[in-house]
């Protein structure tokens, strides 16, 4: 049984009474099992924490949050890799797994609604769904706490990953100093630069 099937069957058999922490625990075990397997038989593994499928969802969502326009987007600057690093090495394990739980529950919600999950949803529908989720979460109206947690984190990490990247600083903020925050040189009218 692969991990997705395992999760599916877990979700199928779990009643609404199942506690989030228990689910997180089971998710965690499944994830550990999966990663251990991956370590042993997949030499081309790219991500430290995310599975290939999770990474796909994370990159799809982060690119919707910060798309490529006249400047690079989230995927161009490696936001998924940054989020993976943070989940693997920065957050406590329980928080990283709660993030994954939120991601899964959200994907399941979309599957129930559209009969296909986010990775198969059209660009247009995906954007509409993430726009709706963003509005709900940012106004604290999302009822599922793991989804609330997951989306707040992915939005925050997408912005950090993007604006503190080389291209985000150079092309988006037009800034070459050491700190990415608090500099707005590009927006200022020409010749108006002044030190304050």
């Amino acid at each position: 049984m692969d991990r997705r099937q395992l999760i599916k069957s877990l979700l199928a058999t779990s009643s609404l009474a199942m506690s989030p922490s228990l689910l997180a625990q089971m998710t965690m075990n499944a994830h550990k099992h999966h990663m251990a397997q991956k370590d042993s038989d997949d030499k081309t593994r790219t991500f430290k924490f995310l599975s290939k499928n999770e990474a796909h969802l994370v990159s799809k969502i982060s690119e919707i949050i910060i798309p490529r326009t006249d400047t690079p987007g989230a995927n161009d600057v490696g936001v998924t890799e940054f989020i993976d690093l943070m989940l693997a090495d920065w957050y406590d394990d329980k928080d990283s797994w709660y993030f994954i739980e939120g991601l899964r529950r959200y994907d399941r919600r979309l599957t129930q609604k559209h009969y296909r999950n986010l990775s198969l949803l059209s660009a247009e529908k995906s954007k509409a769904e993430i726009t709706l989720l963003d509005s709900q979460v940012m106004q604290n109206k999302e009822e599922e706490p793991s989804i609330q947690y997951f989306y707040k984190r992915i939005k925050e990490l997408t912005l950090i990953g993007f604006y503190t990247s080389e291209q985000g600083m150079e092309n988006e903020l037009n800034y070459s100093g050491p700190i990415a925050e608090f500099n707005f040189g590009k927006s200022g009218p020409p010749g108006s630069f002044t030190r304050y």
Partner: peptide, 25 residues
């Protein structure tokens, strides 16, 4: 100070509109 790009993660909005907005302080 004028709020920077990190304010974007505290407010509603995504996509090219968000990007454009965060170019300004």
């Amino acid at each position: 100070r004028q709020l920077g790009w990190s304010r974007g993660s505290q407010q509603v909005g995504i996509g090219s509109e968000l990007k454009q907005q965060l170019r300004d302080p």
